[in-house]
């Protein structure tokens, strides 16, 4: 149980760091179109051609898989530990809804990741679907892939709405991961709870608002 939860905490923290890098890069999309296209495409070319990033990418895939697999195992065991539920249950008065429903939130996030990877990763890395052109500098035009996707209002709404479960998941996840790994300094935990909240809001609002801005561009 400790091993599984520690793996979930470790992979979760790694994915949380990744989200910061991912969001920082996405901020390039907020620049005026001419600059954004050039910089965004140049940046993504650097990522694709870097050996280090390739290794990190495989670590990311592995982290997602481990996190999901162990989540499924732990959830199943927890279900076995509490099979008969109460006729009347008001435990929502003593703990947050999101902390009680991390698994459900995780399912939404996984669904999002699958669709997100189908939209970008499958098209750019695997070459599935419509071909991707090149920009003036000769870089793969990833900006166009992003821009065209977010001309579809359904995708804009989907991408923005799905950041709500992500934010709720992250708010509980960040502080809990540290506790799972053994951080127990009481004052530190109070600070950590605030950091978790700020982190979750920044990530959710940041990722949630960019598709809207791109749509309105």
């Amino acid at each position: 149980m400790f091993f599984k939860k520690s793996i979930m905490a470790g992979t979760g923290l790694f994915l949380s760091i990744f989200l910061i890098v991912h969001l920082s890069a996405n901020c390039l999309l907020l620049l005026p179109e001419s600059m954004a296209r050039e910089l965004y495409n140049a940046y993504s070319t650097i990522l694709r051609e870097s050996i280090v990033i390739t290794i990190v990418a495989y670590l990311l895939y592995l982290s997602i898989i481990l996190h999901v697999v162990y989540a499924a195992i732990v959830t199943y065991k927890n279900y076995k530990a509490s099979p008969d539920r109460y006729m009347m249950n008001h435990t929502n008065e003593t703990s947050s809804w999101s902390s009680q429903n991390m698994g459900l939130l995780g399912v939404f996030i996984l669904l999002f990741i699958v669709i997100h990877m189908a939209n970008f990763w499958a098209r750019i890395k695997l070459g599935l679907g419509d071909g991707v052109g090149f920009d003036a500098a000769g870089n793969l035009d990833v900006y166009e892939v992003t821009y065209s996707l977010f001309q579809n209002i359904y995708f804009v709404v989907f991408y923005s709405i799905m950041m709500i479960p992500l934010g709720l998941h992250l708010n509980h996840a960040l502080k809990s991961a540290f506790k799972t790994l053994g951080f127990y300094h009481k004052k530190g935990l109070r600070v950590l709870a605030k950091i978790s909240l700020v982190y979750a809001v920044v990530i959710a609002v940041g990722f949630g608002i960019i598709p809207l801005i791109v749509y309105l561009k």
Partner: peptide
């Protein structure tokens, strides 16, 4: 079951034991 750190236990605990105790056990 395993601990999800929801914090419900520390609210109900008659002795008011904090879930920081669980983090300390993990440590």
């Amino acid at each position: 079951g395993s601990c999800t750190l929801t914090g419900a236990c520390e609210v109900e605990c008659p002795a008011g034991i904090s879930i920081a105790s669980i983090a300390e056990m993990n440590n």
